[in-house]
């Protein structure tokens, strides 16, 4: 038995105290290029030479305009993570989930806390049990 929980947060500017809430965001997913006919895949191909990696900002189902994350909030999120990549020669780009042609069959890598409440014995997970 395993468990998983996605990562949710808000952002607050340290300089002006402006709070940007991300109630509409259910989590971020790294595009792994699983479907060649997907618009996100095409973007990944376009940017991969520049070492820009594509992340998808997911909302909640049922997907609708009411629950849609605005482009402005996505841009703020992208800026936030790129600012933290100070030592990097690469960057990230965040796109809305609407770009995914078929979200239900997408096999990108969702960032989530997994197996923290797992009941699987340690030896089954690769952890070694000392004698």
């Amino acid at each position: 038995m395993t468990s998983a929980q996605s990562v949710r947060f808000d952002l607050k500017c340290k300089l002006c105290n402006t709070l940007v809430t991300y109630d509409e965001l259910s989590g971020l997913m790294l595009c792994t290029g699983c479907k060649t006919d997907c618009d996100v895949y095409r973007l990944l191909q376009k940017y991969s030479g520049k070492r820009t990696w594509i992340y998808v900002a997911f909302g909640f189902k049922p997907f609708s305009d009411k629950t849609k994350l605005s482009n402005e909030k996505i841009a703020i999120l992208e800026d936030y993570f790129n600012q933290r990549r100070k030592s990097s020669k690469s960057s990230i780009k965040i796109v809305p989930y609407e770009m995914i042609n078929d979200p239900d069959s997408c096999t990108g890598e969702f960032i989530m806390d997994s197996s923290l409440l797992s009941l699987t014995p340690p030896d089954k997970k690769g952890l070694k049990i000392e004698d």
Binding site: L30, S87, F110, S115
Partner: peptide, 17 residues
């Protein structure tokens, strides 16, 4: 001790060494 491949997604996002 996490080994699931989503550690790659998180490490890449933050640009972990």
């Amino acid at each position: 001790i996490q080994t699931h491949k989503n550690i790659v997604a998180a490490a890449n996002l933050i640009d972990i060494a």
